[in-house]
Design a protein around this nucleic acid. Sequence first.
DNA 1: GATTTTGCCTAATCGATTTAGGAAACTTAG
DNA 2: CTAAGTTTCCTAAATCGATTAGGCAAAATC
Lengths: 189, 189
Amino acid sequence: MARAGLTTERLAQAGAELADEVGFDKVTVPALARRFDVTTASLYSHIKSSQDLKAKIALLALEELADRVAAALAGRAGKDALTAFANAYRDYAREHPGRYAAAQLRLDPETAAASAGGRHAQMTRAILRGYDLTEPDRTHAVRMLGSIFHGYVSLEMAGGFSHSAPDSQETWSWILDSLDAQLRNWPRS
Amino acid sequence: MARAGLTTERLAQAGAELADEVGFDKVTVPALARRFDVTTASLYSHIKSSQDLKAKIALLALEELADRVAAALAGRAGKDALTAFANAYRDYAREHPGRYAAAQLRLDPETAAASAGGRHAQMTRAILRGYDLTEPDRTHAVRMLGSIFHGYVSLEMAGGFSHSAPDSQETWSWILDSLDAQLRNWPRS
DNA sequence: GATTTTGCCTAATCGATTTAGGAAACTTAG
DNA sequence: CTAAGTTTCCTAAATCGATTAGGCAAAATC
């Protein structure tokens, strides 16, 4: 019997592609097995469970996203860095909706600790170096940026802004301008 | 054979309670049937499918949340209204995590149109009456507020802010102060 | 080339989803 | 009050996803 050449990495990769095509919630062990023309049971030599597969897809997405953000951030500072960061984030979600959804999966603490989550937090802090904030304002600002980017992208993907003027791109730019102004003028009256 | 007295509303209500207890993704037709001591098939006289059940829970959550926000907003304006709105939103998510997750379910357009989604948008606009914004800034601001509240609450529920100082409440207050200042000083430099 | 390890298979169980069809309980009209 | 109609719930059964046990053949190791 010819072997299909499965590995954990290939499964995660194919699972990520499947997620982008049909949605992360529709990623299922049998569906992935069909892609490799093997039986469902065969995948269980490479993954522990369906949850495990999803977690591996999530880790892959987090790494990819972190790589993109890192590349976008290279050599930039201030508003330039803020915009690059935000756009890298948003573009990834638009190009890879299934992976983006995967990246939101709640991981157990050990897995999360070994993930690219730390790089994300680190890069967000790096953006703020271009602004004149001291602790604890800097941490508050990190959290605010994370919230607004994640929230905006989620709502946009859910179709929240698609059916009315002004278009989503304008709002995105407006928000970035607004955040930049807010951070530059801190502390305010 | 004694009847259990099922109705669509009771199922949605019980489904919402179940969601808060075990998580929205764990709400299943058999699990709900067990609560009423009936067989799984019996529920299908009241719901069209499992998806339909979840949509009904989502609609219930959206209504409840809109009611709460409306109550919180009554008689308030300016920063007071902003804070009340934000806290109503966040408190609901903390008290009813399953329902909050349900409220994020993507509904098909017709269902969404018949939902309390419109009330939410309307109330968000109402908050901004206390600030001096004109279109299209007002719409941009509505979207920004929605994004940040949703994003913050999602990340907080996912445990994103729980393992480091400063605590989440401080950041929440900081963000509200910051948003208020930003909206009051609009347009800026 | 013999042995150990690994990859994939067959077979089977369990739980969730859903439909078909029947019987008992409510409702309503005569 | 009873007969007809409707609704509610049941039994039974098919399908599909998740998962485990145990076997055989292919790779890798010696």
